[in-house]
């Protein structure tokens, strides 16, 4: 097979690598820097950003984000898994309306729904954290539903009949055969739902009204504020690194 000329391949490849890696470098460098004197190619290394982040209540904020991500996953995965089963196996028909409805949040601007819900909170007497969780779950459900739906679509529904025919009750068939078969999709769905809760900014900002301080809230406050690059970068890395680590660990486990 003939190939493109080396100029295209090397030039283009190098540009793509630079394009993808360059935007991540500032927070990586600044998070390990105390200062960056003008004219220097690299900063003066140090951990002042992390010390300040710790003083800025980074740890409790990370914990709040973790809890938020876990709660969103704990709700969005089961209800998405149920819907994904109905859509993937087309139980009782193709359900075009449900399929469209469950995809709709992808199109809707989160800030607008957050404003709409926030206006109602006082009237409905719903606590703010509950409303944050509910709305984040709405935005996580499309992912969990469609990830599980694909897994069911790739699994012959006769496998449950087979389990029944070997003496399993309906519950046993689902628990001992179907769920293990779609387990990778359930984990992927949980990861997506966690990501929605962990990385949310605008819904927590609008509905939380500044009282629910999650890690992204700290990042945004620092990034838009005084120009403390080491602090902003340390907080940003603290939000991004666990996700990257989880992704890499997930890849290793799958091998």
């Amino acid at each position: 097979m003939s190939r493109f000329s080396p100029l295209w391949r090397w030039g283009g490849g190098a540009l793509l690598l630079i394009w993808f890696v360059l935007p991540l470098l500032p927070i990586m460098l600044w998070s390990l820097a105390d200062r960056w004197p003008t004219g220097d190619l690299l900063p003066t290394w140090g951990l002042v950003g992390w010390r300040e982040a710790y003083g800025d209540h980074m740890v409790p904020a990370l914990l709040r984000s973790t809890v938020l991500g876990l709660i969103v996953a704990a709700i969005a995965v089961p209800i998405g898994a149920l819907a994904g089963r109905a859509l993937g196996w087309q139980i009782g028909g193709r359900h075009p309306w449900s399929a469209a409805l469950l995809l709709a949040p992808i199109a809707l601007p989160p800030f607008a729904l957050a404003m709409g819900l926030d206006v109602l909170l006082l009237r409905l007497h719903i606590p703010q954290p509950v409303a944050v969780v509910v709305l984040l779950t709405v935005f996580a459900v499309p992912y969990t539903t469609y990830i599980v739906r694909s897994a069911y679509a790739g699994l012959d529904s006769q496998i449950e009949d087979q389990a029944r025919m070997l003496g399993a009750s309906a519950t046993q068939a689902t628990r001992k055969v179907t769920l293990p078969a779609i387990a990778p999709a359930l984990w992927a769905a949980a990861a997506m739902a966690f990501l929605v809760g962990w990385s949310d900014y605008v819904i927590t900002l609008i509905i939380g009204g500044g009282r629910l301080v999650t890690a992204p809230i700290l990042v945004a406050a620092s990034a838009s504020g005084t120009g403390n690059e080491p602090l902003t970068s340390a907080l940003a890395v603290a939000v991004a690194l666990p996700l990257v680590a989880a992704l890499l660990i997930g890849r290793l486990v799958r091998r």
Partner: peptide, 14 residues
């Protein structure tokens, strides 16, 4: 089905 004392093999081994 699971309590009828019968079992089935399908076209696919499953």
């Amino acid at each position: 089905p699971e309590r009828r004392g019968l079992t089935m093999m399908f076209q696919k081994p499953h």
